[in-house]
Each structure stands twice: as structure tokens, then as C-alpha cells.
């Protein structure tokens, strides 16, 4: 038999796939096996009755409810900041920017998307140091600061998703508006955005997943292990990913370890669901464009 390199490539590719697929399956199965027994009322609310916990009448001490609330508020606030800004920026880059300006702006977006999340966190931390030295001597790390830094982190994804969605609209759809006498902005609002809205939406869902999972940014900008439910945006807060990180290093007994596995499973299910939603949208999208052709 002669030496056939492409045969080796075939064997190697099967090997590579199994070397990646097996660990990931082990990871998911392991989390379900260890995390499932931890799923109980006590994991979420501890000893507190859930009605009292939800209206905030009683603090929750042992459960992960405050962390879930913290993560939710963080997601909502950072989305409020990042989504409009990112979508506008994406529209500008796709439809208006030209020449030198476009290359400058897209370089900035590339730079932003390459930025390690810890550097974003360090930026937030530096901002607080700066504010303390200058005008606001009482400034402190808080939920608001974390939301702003997380917004900065997810901004490049939103911009790119919007830009790519707009730029991949077929030419015949793109010319529809101008042929009817629409101006550029009318064309964007009435033709281009509606026909790319699902793609943009799936980008938004993906970036919400990023906001939910990031730990490095919030570590430097105001997350703490035991804060309870934040009463204001200037409070410190708890978050799911940080709870997992903290408990991994600091668990003192089996109960806390159980809590760590429980929160890891909850976080995995949360980001997995977001991913699944975005995946389904994109799948339908492909079918949509194929029909349109």
C-alpha cells in the first residue's frame, strides 16, 4: 500500500473531533450529574419563604436568589446602554461611513472586540480612582459601573452583528427603497432594518449571553460575595458567575460545594438557552433568504 497523506488527514480529523467532543460532553454531563441533586428550593431561597424573598421583605442568606437578581439587573442595565449604541454604530458603519473614516472606526471596533475583559474591568476601576481623586470623593464600585463596563464589553459584538446583517442584504432588496423614491434613512427604516431585524435580534441575544457569563469585569467593578439584593444602582451586588468562582476557591463545607455546582448548572442552562434561541433564529434566517432568492 502506498503512503497516502490524505488518509492520515482523515484519521487525524476524527481524532481531533473526538478529543474536543468528549471533554465537552464530559463537562456538560458532569455538571448535570453533580448539579442536579443540588436543585432544590433551598438552593434558590435558603430558608426564606419565596414570597417574602421576591418582594424583598426578608433577606435571603443561603440561596443564590440574590445572585440571580444581580445578574438579571446587570444584563438589563448593560443592554439598555449597549443595544441602542451598538445598533446605531453598526448602521453607521454599514450604511454611512466611507473611506478613511470607515477604516478608522472599524479599527476602533476591532480594537474594542480584542480587548480582554479584565482590561475593561481595570478601566472601570481606574475610573473610580480618578473620580475619587477629582470631584467625587465618595465614588465607589457599584452595579452601575459594572453595567457600563459590561456594556463596553458587548458593544463590539452588537456593532459587528448589525453591520454584517445590513451588509449581507441582497442587492435587489437594497435597491427596492431608492427605486420607490425613499431617501437613505427611509430606506434603512422601512426596508433594510425590517429585513435584517432577525439577524440583529440574534446578535442581541448572543451578546446578552456574554453579559451574563463575564466574570473578570465585574470582579473589579463591584461584585461581592454577600451583598444581598441590590436596593439601588449604586449598591454592590452578587452575580452568578462570581458566586461560582468564589465558592470554588472558598467553599468551607459540602453544602457550599453543592451550592457551587447548583449555580454552575443554573448558569450553564441560562447561557445555553440564550444560545439556543439565537441559534434557532439564525437557522430560520438562512431559510428565509434562500426563499427570497
Amino acid at each position: 500500500m502506498t503512503f497516502r497523506p490524505e488518509r492520515i488527514l482523515g484519521i487525524f480529523s476524527w481524532l481531533a473531533v473526538s478529543l474536543v467532543v468528549v471533554p465537552v460532553c464530559v463537562l456538560v454531563v458532569y455538571l448535570f450529574v453533580r448539579g442536579w441533586p443540588a436543585m432544590s428550593y433551598a438552593l434558590f431561597f435558603g430558608d426564606t419563604p419565596w414570597r417574602a424573598a421576591i418582594i424583598g421583605a426578608q433577606p435571603v442568606f443561603d440561596g443564590i436568589y440574590p445572585a440571580i437578581v444581580g445578574t438579571s439587573i446587570l444584563i438589563i442595565c448593560s443592554s439598555i446602554i449597549a443595544i441602542p449604541l451598538g445598533v446605531f454604530c453598526g448602521i453607521y458603519l454599514a450604511e454611512y461611513a466611507q473611506g478613511f473614516l470607515k477604516s478608522i472606526f472599524s479599527f476602533m471596533v476591532d480594537l474594542l472586540s480584542g480587548m480582554p475583559s479584565i482590561v475593561m474591568g481595570l478601566f472601570g476601576f481606574a475610573l473610580i480612582l480618578f473620580m475619587r481623586r477629582t470631584l467625587f470623593s465618595h465614588a465607589n464600585t457599584s452595579l452601575m459601573l459594572s453595567a457600563a463596563c459590561i456594556a463596553l464589553l458587548i458593544l463590539p459584538y452588537l456593532i459587528r452583528m448589525t453591520q454584517v446583517a445590513l451588509e449581507s442584504i441582497p442587492e435587489n432588496v437594497r435597491l427596492l427603497g431608492p427605486s420607490l423614491g425613499y431617501t437613505r434613512w427611509q430606506n434603512i427604516v422601512h426596508v433594510l432594518l425590517p429585513s435584517s431585524s432577525t439577524a440583529i435580534f440574534s446578535g442581541i441575544v448572543l451578546s446578552i449571553g456574554r453579559a451574563a457569563e463575564d466574570t473578570a469585569v465585574i470582579m473589579l467593578t463591584g461584585v461581592v460575595a454577600n451583598a444581598g439584593i441590590p436596593r439601588a444602582l449604586s449598591d454592590k451586588f452578587e452575580a452568578l458567575p462570581f458566586t461560582i468562582f468564589y465558592l470554588t476557591a472558598e467553599h468551607r463545607n459540602d453544602l457550599e460545594l453543592q451550592k457551587a455546582f447548583g449555580s454552575a448548572l443554573v448558569l450553564l442552562v441560562l447561557t445555553g438557552t440564550l444560545f439556543f434561541i439565537s441559534y434557532c433564529i439564525q437557522k430560520n434566517l438562512k431559510r428565509y433568504w434562500r426563499l427570497g432568492e
Binding site: 474536543v20 467532543v21 465537552v24 463537562l27 458532569y30 466574570t215 461560582i244 444560545f275
Partner: peptide
């Protein structure tokens, strides 16, 4: 299936990779 799994991997939080690694 493999492609779907690879895309799914992008959504697994970093902290979970670290977490499972610590215990396995």
C-alpha cells in the same frame, strides 16, 4: 452535530470551564 456543538462551546461561560477543570 459537530458544528452545532462547536458553536455551543462558544456559549459555555469561561468560569464553568475553570470550575469543571478544578474538580476533574
Amino acid at each position: 452535530t459537530v458544528l452545532g456543538l462547536v458553536y455551543f462551546m462558544t456559549s459555555i461561560p469561561t468560569v464553568i470551564y475553570g470550575f469543571v477543570s478544578v474538580f476533574i
